[in-house]
Design a binder for these strands. Structure first.
Length: 423
RNA sequence: GGAAGCGUGCCGGAGCGGCCGAACGGAACAGUCUUGAAAACUGUCGUAGUUAAUAGCUACCGUGGGUUCAAAUCCCACCGCUUCCUCCA
């Protein structure tokens, strides 16, 4: 939800942002009007309710013989109060309905345009140049006996897989490396619930246009989360948190479930696009003034992690038209995937400014004792998809895969994954 | 899954239709006393919104509805917790 003060004082800023996103500008005018209506209705209701409260006390203390007459007056007041209350409620609902459709105000410097208009900020690392017939990750996985796609399909259907032996250990090693890095940076580890109630799913904004991406369990009326962001954002819902000692940072680990309903036929080979994977997600609650700086930090931590995995990558600055509705700015890091001769997204980090926190009612106390809405940011630190890039980029002429040095301590010191070695 | 009970402020715990935003106790904070501390005594003390305001007003006694002139108190639904039985990683 956008900032009401901004809406009241400077709606043209919001209009400009909506325009940049290719969203409706008209909504802003509607919101201004709905907000004014609501404020007027609320004032009416509050003064009537004050009158009623005073009257009730009069009735309570009045002598018996006067009560009947006073009650009659009270009855009249009561109907007026009820009418005013319901009209205030209606006005609030109308206001919210419009307000919730307006997307976050885009930060300055975000590239204009749509999906293909991203700006490449930098390319880092050297793409491997293989002087031998190189393989894609599903071939490597099969030959090294670390990824079993056939049995994944047999047991659970398409887009499911088994990570086996060193494959399974590699993922756990990567997660541990990421977790250690996050802990060092001040993140508290959280293992989050992956089944959540409808109101949480809706509150965090994942039940909108992407509702068919989400698994739902009708027998229990629960949703399977596609990212721990849902739980991490909901964690401090309706709370006033203490930021006096710096940002609150959480590293959420969870299995993620996605139906991939709209992507039939895309990325069907290997584990680039699957229904179930694991992810370590960074999530920060910060003062709004610090949001930009925090965003740069999240990006730096992501880059650090990619560098530890010795992956060539590029950082892109997503264009306004391709931002999720709650993001004010988003950076993606894409790693080079040799078999596809292209960069593929491994991480994403969004600065949601106060948009998401306002929706979830998360505040903090400022130095002067007042409360204010804080800012939230999120960013991927490691996912199962990273294995694709690690396996492909580090493959050797003999068919083995060289393990990046930073991961070796988590794998008993092993330097290579070969077909002969069993975990 | 079966049975019973319970959800009140930082904590404990009263209140069971009206001068209740809520007794009392503890904690906390300020002060008196003391060389200092403890003890004792005095005072302050729920949260949030609105506001220039520690003024006023509004909302909040698990959540959402309902009854009533008036609800923490009555009714309904939901959520959660505890104990016992059943089951179980």
């Amino acid at each position: 939800m956008i900032d009401l003060n901004l809406l009241r004082e400077n709606p043209s800023t919001i209009k400009a942002s909506q325009r940049a996103r290719g969203a409706s500008e008209e909504l802003v005018d509607q919101a201004v009007k709905a907000d004014a209506d609501w404020r007027a209705d609320l004032a009416t209701f509050e003064s009537l309710r004050a009158e009623q409260n005073a009257h009730s006390k009069t009735v309570a203390t009045a002598p018996k013989e006067e009560k009947a007459a006073l009650v009659a007056v009270g009855q009249e007041l009561s109907t007026k109060v009820k009418a005013a209350e319901s009209s205030a409620n209606e006005a609030a609902a109308k206001r919210d309905e419009i307000l919730w459709q307006i997307e976050n105000v885009v930060c300055e410097g975000v590239p204009a345009g749509g999906e293909d208009d991203f700006e490449v900020l930098r390319e880092v690392g050297t793409k491997p140049s293989f002087n031998f017939p190189f393989k894609d990750h599903s071939e490597l996985g099969k030959e090294l006996d670390i990824l079993d796609l056939e049995r994944g399909v047999k047991v659970s259907g398409s887009r499911f897989y088994f990570l086996k032996g060193w494959g399974a250990r590699l993922e756990i090693a990567m997660m541990n490396l990421a977790l250690d890095q996050a802990a060092e940076a001040g993140f508290t580890a959280l293992i989050t619930p992956t089944l959540v109630r409808p109101e949480v799913m809706a509150g965090t904004g994942f039940l909108g246009s992407h509702a068919d991406e989400i698994y739902y369990l009708p027998a229990d009326d629960l949703y399977l989360t596609g990212t721990s962001e849902v739980a991490l954002a909901g964690y401090h819902r309706d709370e006033i948190v203490d930021l006096s000692e710096g940002p609150l940072r959480y590293a959420g680990w969870s299995t993620c479930y996605r139906r991939e309903a709209g992507s039939a036929g895309r990325d069907t080979k290997g584990i680039l696009r699957v229904h179930q994977f694991n992810k370590l997600e960074m999530f920060s609650y910060v003062e709004p003034e610090q949001a930009d700086a925090e965003h740069e930090k999240l990006l730096a931590w992501q880059e650090q992690m990619l560098q530890k995995c010795e992956l060539p990558y590029r950082v892109i600055h997503t264009a306004a038209g391709d931002l999720g509705s709650s993001a004010a700015r988003k950076y993606d890091i894409e790693a080079w995937v040799p078999s596809q001769e292209t960069y593929r997204e491994l991480t994403s980090t969004s600065n949601c400014t106060t948009f998401q926190a306002r929706r979830l009612n998360v505040r903090y106390r400022k130095d002067d004792g007042r409360t204010a809405t804080l800012a939230t940011l999120n960013g991927t630190l490691a996912t199962t998809r990273w294995l694709v890039a690690i396996l492909e980029n580090h493959q050797q002429p003999d068919g083995s895969v060289k393990i990046p040095a930073a991961l070796r301590p988590y794998l008993g010191g092993a330097e290579y994954i070969t077909g002969k070695v069993r975990a």
